[in-house]
């Protein structure tokens, strides 16, 4: 059984082939096309984990009366990758995770498509749920990625909150 399982693991996750590598996390990614959530899940999943949480953020069509046609994302790429890596490393230590991976999509993301995926593996589910929420909360306030909303009845508009970013 062990011999049969080995090639499958290598194909699924070349960047995380043992528990030591997983604890360092996969390199976070910014992609310009659809996110392969299942590939990310396979790369993060670990034999030492009893829980794997997959979070996928998608483009929502309606916010109250506002109808969103699509979202468009841009980033300060080097800073965003550095911020994601710091967040990921902190989550791995803070929640004693077995694995963690984050992918954010840039460019146009149509309604229903994924803009971000976070996968967290831990020994028990409580840590995986908590780490996923913690990562998303911080990603949304500190990682230099911006969305531009295209709506049915107004010109496209960049979305900016009130809080000055920092990490």
């Amino acid at each position: 059984m062990a011999e049969a399982a080995m090639p499958q693991r290598q194909a699924a996750g070349p960047l995380a082939t043992d528990a030591h590598d997983r604890r360092h996390g996969l390199a976070p990614q910014l992609v310009d096309g659809p996110i392969d959530v299942e590939l990310l899940r396979r790369q993060v999943a670990a034999d030492t984990a009893g829980a794997v949480v997959v979070f996928v953020g998608t483009t929502r069509r309606a916010t109250g009366d506002v109808i969103t046609e699509r979202l468009e994302y841009e980033a300060h790429r080097p800073l965003a990758i550095a911020c994601l890596a710091r967040l990921q490393n902190e989550a791995l230590q803070r929640f004693s995770l077995e694995g963690c991976g984050i992918v954010h999509r840039l460019g146009v993301v149509e309604v229903g498509e994924a803009s971000v995926a976070v996968v967290v593996a831990s020994q028990h589910r409580a840590a995986a749920f908590a780490a996923t929420a913690w990562l998303m909360d911080r990603l949304k306030t500190s990682v230099p990625v911006w969305k531009r909303e295209h709506t049915a009845n107004a010109k496209p508009c960049w979305v900016h909150g009130e809080e000055r970013p920092g990490l």
């Binding site: 800073l79 550095a82 979305v159 900016h160 000055r164 920092g166």
Partner: peptide, 26 residues
């Protein structure tokens, strides 16, 4: 570069500088 500055941090001449407005990823 790849770090946010605090208000009191020095920004040297010829640094790799960016203005980062409030973010909205996710």
């Amino acid at each position: 570069g790849e770090r946010y500055c605090r208000d009191e941090d020095q920004v040297p001449p010829e640094a790799d500088v960016a203005v980062i407005p409030p973010v909205s990823g996710g």
